[in-house]
Design a protein around this nucleic acid. Structure first.
Lengths: 338, 338
DNA sequence: AAATATTATGTTAGCGTTAACATAATAATA
DNA sequence: TATTATTATGTTAACGCTAACATAATATTT
């Protein structure tokens, strides 16, 4: 492999000292325009690029942000991918690279992260976050941020989270404003925080508009097409005029059940889903020839904000502990006025 | 943040020289058992972990493998994710970490990769690989490996690829052995290499068994449910007894068309798909109550092998230029003897 | 013009590790 | 026991960069 030149060679070629070159490549300190040009010329001629490893060692800072993704079944990879995309962008805008630790089930990363000196700070994402990791970074005072709101064993992390409560509340209110009162909800959960929050938003909206909460319209957590299908079949017995479904797969199943029952969307029943899997959502819309109204999580923005938050933290700036991101309600063609 | 100790502090604590500590942590050279224990004790007491940045600078080697994923629509993220998982594992087994560059559309990575000194070698994956990147690493003699077979502008890369030709040939032969001769093929493409190869395998099997190739049974590239649905509707006019579909989404669409036509799988028609998206596949199987026979790409193995290949290359070992991975035919319940 | 401020450049040491060589201690051989 | 091989340890100088300080060259003020 062709060896790349170093800063000292550039300095020699330009007839200046190493520090002058350093100042030029870092745009720091004062360098006269004349010398700057000389140095830039030498850099170009030698095809020089700074050695990031050496720089990191000298600065005691890598400008690399770590992102740990605890993958699991059920939550679609695409969901994470978009967020990762956003984190990447946010980090990049602030001059950071991203090192993603993922795809290793149930593994602990924090020792490597806090010790290896490869990352300046870390973002944790995923449902099954390794407890040891949290405790470890926390005790070491290593800068970390959560994506997803939580509180673990008394530790209050810096976190950023989609505002599921508000998002679902707004969607439900939309249905209520259209005249619906018999609104089904598929996806209750006492374990999964986002699903829990969604139900909460649903309930808040009902309460605010004096619609009586009817537990018979609410169905257990659903992750798969089959779950959604079965839940919807049961729900239809209650003759709801609208339904909110917590998950793309379940929405597909539920929609199938609606079709099988000979009902039309939105004529006979209004449907609102969540776009946790946008690709699948689009595919599905395309297939059934309908634009489902969805509650959209701005995943890229979420990731960006997470990166900014983590970097603010690791750079020692004052950083708010909690950060909620608004969801967007996509008012498409699957809801109708009663 | 709590500062972590360094090698010299460990050396002092153990009453030995820095090199002795270095030898202990690297398991290299000769160290007497007595001193080794002393050093290990000091390491434990000081909670020491080597600084990887410093080590990389000294060794001029990071033991980090780069993986560039050129993402795009159409190919499901989950597909890549499993491969990444495999690369991670393979790298890990050989003492390497993985730095994934991805999620930045149409971006060129190679300058950063070849210059930053952060990675020792790189794997490229994805359909729309950046031409400049290839040329760049190639000209610099930087070690690189492709996932997916190709030849770009006269450059013959080291590559690893699923053997789509063989896999599809075997699946087709299976159908022929079951007595099928009117076998449809959905997913022809002259652009996408894997799809091209799949058709080739299909044709080879027909040829080998003296079944006449009928272009009317072959349909254009299909990526979406709708594509698969439409293609299948057309294909059914030819009354095929079996069909091979190149893609999970298309398979779902095609299956829907079969059902709508009032046909049963496998009684009326045998179906073989590809499991490029295993999660969706499972969900779908679950939903239609059928275990689709699929041609499975061993993605984790593929990734592992890619890592081994790249590392072998960058360590200067003799490495074969091409490496084909066998596909697995999952003989489930969607094929029937004629 | 002298004194001071400002800008431009240079020098040196150190970041934490390992490579390369040097030396000391022990074991094996003559 | 002296000589040689082997094993165990140490010393020093990189790796390529930047921080911190020092100095030189200008520009600005009095």
């Amino acid at each position: 492999m062709t060896r790349s030149s170093n800063l000292i060679e550039v300095a020699k070629a330009a007839g200046v000292s190493n520090m002058t070159v350093s100042r030029v490549i870092n745009n720091s300190g004062n360098v006269s325009e004349k010398t700057r040009q000389k140095v830039l010329k030498a850099i170009k001629e030698l095809n020089y690029q700074p050695n990031l490893i050496a720089r990191s060692l000298a600065r005691k800072k890598t400008n690399i942000l770590g992102l740990v993704v605890y993958t699991e079944k059920g939550v679609h990879p695409a969901f994470y991918n978009e967020i990762i995309n956003g984190v990447q962008k946010g980090a990049s805008e602030l001059g950071y690279d991203l090192l993603v630790f993922a795809n290793r089930e149930d593994q602990s990363y924090s020792d490597r992260i806090t010790h290896s000196s490869f990352v300046d700070g870390v973002i944790f994402m995923g449902v099954k976050i390794n407890q040891h990791d949290i405790r470890n970074v926390h005790e070491k005072g290593f800068p970390y941020v959560f994506i997803g709101k939580r509180e673990i064993e008394g530790i209050q992390p810096y976190f950023i989270s989609p505002d599921y409560v508000k998002g679902t509340r707004m969607a439900t209110e939309h249905l209520i404003e259209l005249g619906h009162t018999k609104i089904g909800f598929i996806g209750q959960s006492r374990i999964i925080e986002p699903d829990y929050d969604k139900l909460l938003g649903y309930q808040e909206a009902l309460f605010k508009h004096h619609v009586v909460y009817n537990p018979q319209l609410v169905f257990e957590e659903s992750q798969t097409q089959l779950d959604g299908y079965n839940a919807m079949k049961e729900l239809l017995k209650q003759k709801p005029t609208a339904v909110i479904i917590n998950n793309t797969y379940a929405t597909i199943g539920a929609t199938t059940a609606i079709k099988e029952a000979g009902l039309q969307i939105p004529e006979d029943i209004s449907v609102i889903g969540f776009d946790d899997n946008q690709e699948l959502n689009e595919q599905f819309n395309d297939f059934i020839g309908l634009e489902l109204s969805t509650i959209r999580i701005p995943k890229v923005e979420l990731g960006k904000e997470a990166a900014k938050m983590a970097i603010s933290l690791l750079e020692g700036n004052e950083t708010p502990k909690a950060n909620f991101i608004d969801l967007h309600f996509m008012k498409n063609s699957s809801c109708k006025k009663l």
